[in-house]
């Protein structure tokens, strides 16, 4: 009974469906067979990633790293690590040197002697952070090689800079367009000679009181071109630079 039912069930499947089913089975089976026969290198994501990590790890190294250079170049290295260039890697200026480390004779690193090299970092650029040593290459001892005056492994200025703008370019830039343009820095700041050699240890002074500004700006001052105020009544609870930036006084803070 049950068997007969089953038989009629199979007979009842329409002809079209059986034909399509055969095609489907062939297609799916074929695709499945191909997939199974393919090597794991084509289908395994995990394997592929392991291979990539290995391949990536095995890529050649071009920059040897700064710790190696001192083994042979002791003089330069020891000089460098105490000077202003102590944070520089040797390969920053000398270029990739792994080949030189492997075989010192086969490859010689680049030795920058041209004047064009140092300004890559030290040419004045208004986007550079204040305090970073910068020069104007067109007027800074033209035609001379930088190394003539500065030892690149221990760069210090050969002569003490005379102009404040050598280091304080940003402030000079601001002051030069202000009404204080013609006032020398030393009018307001006392600059000990040692400040130019140890700028962060020996500091220049700053004005400390309202009266200092008053020497020019109070009523009765002999300075004729400066605008005058009554020191005793003009915002007496504040010091001047809380509202006026001395290097650009027209601008209210």
């Amino acid at each position: 009974m049950c068997g007969a039912n089953k038989k009629s069930f199979w007979r009842n499947i329409p002809d079209q469906i059986i034909r399509l089913a055969v095609v489907t089975v062939l297609l799916v089976g074929g695709a499945g067979a191909i997939y199974i026969l393919l090597p794991a290198s084509l289908t395994s994501t995990k394997l592929h990633r392991e291979l990539t990590v290995t391949a990536e790890t095995e890529k050649p190294i071009r920059f040897a790293g700064s710790t190696l250079c001192g083994d042979c170049h002791q003089i330069e290295y020891e000089k460098k690590i105490v000077g202003y260039h102590k944070s520089l890697s040797c390969e920053t200026c000398h270029g990739a040197a792994a080949a030189h480390v492997d075989d010192p004779m086969a490859a010689t690193p680049f030795v920058p002697r041209e004047r064009e090299v140092c300004p890559v970092c030290h040419e004045y650029d208004p986007s550079r952070p204040t305090g970073f040593p910068q020069i104007n290459p067109t007027i800074h001892n033209p035609l001379q090689s930088c190394a003539n005056c500065h030892n690149p492994h221990d760069p210090v200025p050969p002569t003490t800079p005379q102009e404040c703008s050598a280091c304080h370019a940003g402030i000079m830039r601001t002051k030069s367009v202000s009404s204080h343009a013609l006032i020398a820095c030393t009018t307001c700041h006392k600059v000990p000679e040692q400040h130019k050699i140890f700028p962060r240890i020996v500091r220049a002074t700053k004005p400390e009181s309202r009266d200092f500004c008053g020497t020019c700006h109070s009523q009765g001052s002999s300075e004729r071109s400066a605008p005058k105020i009554d020191l005793s009544r003009h915002e007496e609870r504040y010091v001047c630079w809380q509202c006026h930036y001395p290097h650009l006084p027209a601008e209210r803070l």
Binding site: S66, S89, A96, F132
Partner: peptide, 23 residues
């Protein structure tokens, strides 16, 4: 960029970090 993967797994710094003059 791979963070210079071939360098960092060997304890070296990436090339850009290595040469940066101002850290």
């Amino acid at each position: 960029c791979t963070f210079c993967y071939h360098r960092v797994v060997k304890g070296l710094l990436p090339a850009c970090v290595e040469v940066c003059p101002t850290q």
